[in-house]
Simulated scan of single mutants.
Amino acid sequence: MQSTAVNLTGKHLLTLFDYSVEEVTYLLSEAAKGKKMFQNGESSSVLKGKSLGMIFENASTRTRVSFEVGMTQLGGHALFLSPKDLQIGRGEPIKDTANVLSRYVDAIMIRTNSHQTVEELAAHSSVPVINALTDAYHPCQALADALTIQEKKGKLAGLSLVYVGDGNNVAHSLMAVGAKTGMNVTISSPNGYEVDPIILKHAQDAGKQTGAVISLQADPHLAAKGADIVYTDVWTSMGYENEQSKHIQDLQAYQVNDELMAAAHKQAIFMHCLPAHRDEEVTGSVIDGTQSVVYDQAENRLHVQKAILRSVIAHNGITFGGL
């Protein structure tokens, strides 16, 4: 089966805003096909002989395991690179690291604190760079979230997702994926924790193409009213650990609990990108309850990463269905 309409070979994935509606739809379709193959016991060695360099400036469970296992399942190899393994940790310019790694590997995945670092790496890399998390965006997580919602609800367009809590990188990427898929996204955060207004405007503009409404609502219970998906994240993002006590105090009214879930649609699902702090941003009764799909989200990171890797490294006009 040949597919020439979408070809992502060599394309960086820094933010979903850089991808068209068709390209986002394609990645989700490829992830779903790949997951079905995996569940059916089918395998693919499409990335045989290919290598992924994985740069981690901070700790990770789901990101490292999903990318590393994904490369292995596709026949390739992944290298874990911490700051102490690279000369970046000793002050080597990002430009030099990008140029050198491009001579060794077929793609570079990076999880870093600064989005500027990812942009600089991509600017000097001749192989695709994948943003596995920055302070501004978390596109791989948002794609896994969209795949999970699609599985649970049968669609994305027209659904309503409310994100409650700190307007962080996860919130930014949820707005982006909503805008690209026609899913309405409402962000509910207190003063001082709002999403970046420039990213909000970008999402609202992008949503005009699909009919997605991207909005803000400070009152979490009003925001959650009738929602199909209720989503939250930790109140203290990486890099802000010294402000943890203040964040807990400021965000107490934004906890996802049974009362807030009751305001949502009775068939609503609860989502969290993990790791979670029970009885801070979400109660145990919600995250461990029947409406929670957090482990499905985590599992889908693997299938989304595989779709991204296969698409940007070795597309060649072939879909998962034709492997």
Results as ranks from 00 to 15, higher is better:
residue 204 Q to H: 07
residue 199 I to H: 03
residue 208 K to C: 04
residue 184 N to L: 13
residue 190 P to C: 14
residue 213 V to E: 13
residue 201 K to P: 01
residue 191 N to I: 11
residue 193 Y to E: 02
residue 210 T to E: 05
residue 197 P to M: 11
residue 205 D to N: 15
residue 191 N to L: 14
residue 198 I to W: 02
residue 200 L to S: 09
residue 217 Q to S: 09
residue 187 I to T: 09
residue 210 T to R: 06
residue 201 K to V: 00
residue 194 E to W: 06
residue 213 V to L: 10
residue 208 K to S: 05
residue 201 K to W: 02
residue 199 I to V: 14
residue 213 V to S: 05
residue 216 L to M: 11
residue 190 P to N: 12
residue 186 T to K: 13
residue 189 S to A: 15
residue 207 G to V: 05
residue 217 Q to V: 06
residue 211 G to S: 03
residue 193 Y to D: 04
residue 197 P to W: 09
residue 217 Q to G: 00
residue 208 K to D: 10
residue 196 D to N: 15
residue 193 Y to A: 01
residue 192 G to T: 11
residue 189 S to E: 08
residue 193 Y to L: 00
residue 199 I to C: 00
residue 184 N to T: 03
residue 184 N to S: 02
residue 209 Q to W: 01
residue 210 T to V: 06
residue 213 V to R: 12
residue 193 Y to W: 05
residue 208 K to F: 00
residue 217 Q to H: 12
residue 192 G to I: 13
residue 210 T to A: 10
residue 200 L to I: 02
residue 211 G to M: 02
residue 195 V to W: 11
residue 212 A to E: 07
residue 203 A to C: 11
residue 213 V to T: 14
residue 185 V to M: 11
residue 214 I to W: 07
residue 191 N to Q: 12
residue 195 V to E: 04
residue 187 I to Y: 05
residue 200 L to Y: 02
residue 186 T to H: 09
residue 191 N to H: 12
residue 208 K to V: 12
residue 184 N to K: 07
residue 197 P to A: 05
residue 197 P to E: 12
residue 215 S to R: 10
residue 193 Y to N: 06
residue 216 L to K: 11
residue 189 S to I: 03
residue 184 N to Q: 04
residue 189 S to W: 05
residue 210 T to H: 06
residue 188 S to T: 12
residue 195 V to N: 04
residue 204 Q to C: 10
residue 211 G to I: 02
residue 212 A to P: 02
residue 208 K to E: 15
residue 212 A to W: 02
residue 216 L to V: 13
residue 204 Q to G: 08
residue 188 S to V: 11
residue 199 I to A: 00
residue 187 I to S: 10
residue 198 I to M: 06
residue 193 Y to Q: 08
residue 192 G to N: 05
residue 190 P to W: 13
residue 211 G to D: 04
residue 211 G to R: 01
residue 209 Q to G: 00
residue 186 T to A: 10
residue 209 Q to K: 15
residue 210 T to I: 01
residue 198 I to Q: 11
residue 193 Y to T: 12
residue 188 S to P: 09
residue 194 E to A: 13
residue 192 G to Q: 02
residue 184 N to Y: 07
residue 199 I to P: 03
residue 201 K to S: 13
residue 198 I to Y: 06
residue 198 I to G: 03
residue 199 I to M: 03
residue 187 I to D: 08
residue 216 L to A: 13
residue 194 E to M: 09
residue 200 L to A: 04
residue 215 S to D: 13
residue 191 N to K: 15
residue 211 G to E: 08
residue 216 L to H: 04
residue 208 K to R: 13
residue 195 V to R: 00
residue 204 Q to R: 14
residue 184 N to V: 00
residue 190 P to T: 14
residue 191 N to V: 09
residue 186 T to D: 11
residue 206 A to P: 02
residue 201 K to M: 07
residue 217 Q to D: 13
residue 199 I to L: 14
residue 208 K to Q: 15
residue 217 Q to R: 05
residue 216 L to E: 15
residue 216 L to P: 00
residue 211 G to F: 09
residue 184 N to G: 06
residue 195 V to S: 04
residue 184 N to D: 10
residue 207 G to R: 09
residue 198 I to V: 15
residue 202 H to T: 14
residue 212 A to C: 07
residue 200 L to G: 10
residue 196 D to E: 04
residue 207 G to D: 12
residue 214 I to E: 05
residue 209 Q to F: 03
residue 196 D to W: 07
residue 192 G to S: 08
residue 206 A to C: 00
residue 203 A to Q: 06
residue 210 T to C: 03
residue 195 V to D: 01
residue 194 E to V: 14
residue 190 P to G: 07
residue 203 A to E: 03
